[in-house]
Every structure is written in structure tokens, then in C-alpha cells.
Amino acid sequence: MFRASGNLLRLEVGSDWAPPPQLNDLGLGLWRLGPRFPSWLQSLKLLNSLNLSNSGISSHIPSWVFFNSVLYSIDLSSNLLTGPLPFISPITSILDLSNNSLSGTITNFLCYKPKLVRSIDLSENKLSGEIPWGMTRLEGLQSLNLSGNLLTGEIPEDVGAMRSLESIDLSQNQLSGEIPRSMSGMTFLSFLNFSDNKLSGRIPSSTQFDGFNASSFAGNLNLCGLPLARNCSNVPAPGQDGIGNGEEDEGHVYEQWYFYVSIAIGFIVGFWGVVGSLALSRSWRYGYFRFIDSLWYKFRTG
């Protein structure tokens, strides 16, 4: 194990320096390593934990950094990293790439081993696009921070499947749509921040959500319901028809109307098709009653 993070001085590491290859825990936070990743990292095949936070690295993240099959904790926060997110090692449990300049989208590479991932922090970058649906498969995830990016689209509906989640921060993005109702069942959730987005509709009502204050939802102009002061008098509750549902509601009402009219017409045609025929034709009427009498006689005589 080699740890030197947290020093008050900005220390420099020479290009010819390299830690022993059998090292499994490397912490060089606040050491001046940049602008590029040190090439000697490739020789550390047994590395379990890597901390190069605040080290002045300003290049892309080379793919070989994550090819280590035993690397489970990665902290590259507070650097000047650029470019897209790389492929992440399948066993990565703790990932911190916050406070960089990473761009591009968040792809489903994070979902390789759902039960192993515990913490993801991609905050304060320049990531765009939607939150991938595959993130909801991270069953063991306890902390998720995607704040301070350029994310758009809706929060995945299946986010409630992440039952182990204790903290989620999606603030300061451009997310839209409603807060998924599935989140009401996230019993371990103790911290939530959805502020400064474009979310709309009702805030879910549940024991979990009742514990969050207004600041968790502030900055969403079309969001309503407790703990916000904005009421939802003009917003229909989930599953109810109301103003603002547009063509979908109109189509639903039309289908209901067509269904009931069809039943009424079928009843009228069927009823008068039989009764009318018996009333207009004496022979049919006599034949019908003789048929009924014969059935009754057979029933009584066994």
C-alpha cells in the first residue's frame, strides 16, 4: 500500500519514478502527475484501489487505466480530464470522476456487474444526453451523483428498482417530465436533490418523500405538491382524467363512448330481432311456444 494523498504541498513525481508492481493500494491525491497519465500505471496488475484526485491530469482517460481486472475503487476527481467516458472495469465498485471536463453521453457500460457497483459520482462535468435505462439495473448502488451536467430527457421510470439507493443527486441539469412514482418505494433513500431542472407534475406522496424539504425540488417551475408551496389544483392525480391530457384523454373518452353505444345497439337489435319476429308472424309464434312446451314436458318427465 502506498498513500500520499491529502498533503498540503503540491508534490511532483519524476517521470522515472514507479511504485513496486505488487502494489494493491495507490493514493497520490494532490501530487503533480499531469498533464498525462503516468505510463507506469500499466505495470500495476494487482492494483485494487487508485486515487489520483486533484493531480493536474488534463488528458483523456486512456482505456488501459480500466483494463485492470482487480481494480474496484477509482478516484480521478478534481482534475482537468476531457473527452468521453471510457469503458469501466467490470468489477468497479466505487467510481469518482467528479469535477472534470468529461463530455459525451453516459452509456450502459456502467451496468456490467449490477450487484457490485456501490457508488457513482460523475458530477460537475459536461455530460449530455439521457440517463441510460441500464442504470436502473444497478441493484446494489447506494449513492448516485450526476449533478452539474447537461443531461436531458426524463428520469428512467424504473429508477425505483434501485432498492439499495440511499443518496441521489440529479440537480442542475435539464431533465424534464415527471418524477417516477416508482421512487415512492425506495425505503433506504435518505438524501435527494432534483433541484434546478425542468421537471413537472406532482411530487410523489409517500413516507420517503415527505421527509425531504423544498430545496430538494426548487428551481422546477412546473413541479407542484408538498413540500413545495405550489399546489396541484389544476394538475390531475395519476390515473385520473383531467385538463391537460390532450389527445390521449379525448381518444380514451371516445373509446368508452363507442363501447357503450355498441352494447346498446347490440341489445336492441338482438331483442327486437326475436320479439319482433314472434309478434309479426303467427306461425313462428305458435311454433316457438310448442317448442318451449316440449322442452318443459321433457324436463318434468325426465
Rank of each mutant, 00 (worst) to 15 (best):
E12N: 14
F271Q: 01
S98T: 11
A264S: 15
F209V: 01
W257M: 09
N24A: 14
D25F: 12
N197I: 03
W31D: 00
L221D: 11
L141S: 04
T92A: 15
G302M: 09
L199N: 01
W284V: 01
N231H: 04
I57P: 03
T82R: 09
I168F: 01
S233N: 06
L71N: 10
L47N: 08
F191Y: 12
N231Y: 05
P38L: 02
I292N: 08
Q22M: 12
G148I: 06
M186N: 01
F188K: 11
R290M: 13
S101I: 08
P84K: 12
L95C: 05
N234T: 14
W17A: 14
I74S: 09
I91K: 08
A237M: 03
I179A: 05
L151R: 11
V65R: 10
G56K: 03
M1C: 11
G140E: 07
I179Q: 00
F289C: 06
F191S: 15
H252W: 08
Q208A: 15
D25A: 12
N48F: 04
Y258L: 15
K298G: 15
F291A: 14
T207G: 06
H60C: 00
G148K: 14
M135P: 00
V261S: 01
Q172C: 03
I263M: 11
T107I: 06
G129D: 06
G29E: 09
S281E: 10
G270T: 13
I263L: 15
V235C: 03
N54R: 10
S98Y: 10
R163H: 07
S143H: 10
S216I: 07
Q142K: 08
G270A: 05
G56I: 11
F217H: 11
L46D: 13
I265E: 12
G242I: 04
G29L: 02
D293Y: 12
S216L: 04
R32K: 14
S123T: 04
S39D: 09
K298L: 15
L223W: 02
T152C: 09
S39T: 07
W40Y: 07
M135R: 00
L151G: 09
H60N: 01
Y112W: 09
S205L: 13
F191R: 15
S176Y: 07
I268K: 05
